[in-house]
Amino acid sequence: MSRSELYQEEFHPSPLQHTWLEFKENHIAVGGLCCFIFILTIVLFCNILAPFDPLLQKTDAILIPPAWEPNGSIVNVFGTDALGRDLLSRVMYGCQMTFGISIILVLVAMLVGVSVGAVAGMSRGVRSSVVNHTLDSMMAIPTLLIAIIIIAILGTGLVNSMWAITLALTPQFIHQTRDFVRQERKKEYVRAAKLDGAPPTQIFIRSILPNMGEVLVVQGTLALSIAILDISALGFLNLGAQAPTAELGAMLSEGIEVAYMAPWSIALPGAAIFLMMLSINLVGDGLRSALRNRLLH
């Protein structure tokens, strides 16, 4: 009998593999993940995948219905809008705009928020509580409102709305990180790390951060949904992305004018936003329980 058969489990999965093993058990979350990967592929490769230029106007093909309608054509699978632009290409580029930008915004907000929150959590006294209470009061205001206020100061435009949303999302990450660090700092494993002679940065990175996955996933999912909704909302209100740009919110507001004649021109961008939100929340929920279960069994 060879040695490898002595123990049934000689396989020691890494934390990432552990999480995946737990994640796999949740079938709905795996469905959400497939959906998420599908959207991500579109976002990354829409230059290759999109059949037409999203800004190309064909005056002879205005308001063509989608391919599944009796008088639709297979050339424009999702039909065309009031200016004769191919809706499929526009939805794809819109996904890239809305989803891609949201992911970048959330990553930036997370990076800044976690670093500031860590400093606030690891320090004591006046500095820490000033950071905390100033930001707490900001959290009472909805992010969309903060974003609109910031845009009112900076002026409309996609870049300004990106700044606004990042600034509005960061306090939540700061708050969550600070709370978590405060709470963990009292625990004995942090004291044990302190006794090993670890400086505060080491304590945060090596001891506290590995336990923060769950918090970050919950907050990150929430922030990503908020970012997508806010970018589309600002686009819809004509405060964010401006008219010719393919952005899902802006497309909705353009489609409103012809909603009775061409319902698909608002139904399809809306469905895209819905699909994004659904997959993000399914993946986030599955990931959160996977991270929790990883440390239970």
Partner: peptide, 16 residues
Amino acid sequence: IRMIFQNSNESLNPGI
């Protein structure tokens, strides 16, 4: 000088 804590469960980091 090394210490063994009262509650060994709490003194080990759950995440690593």
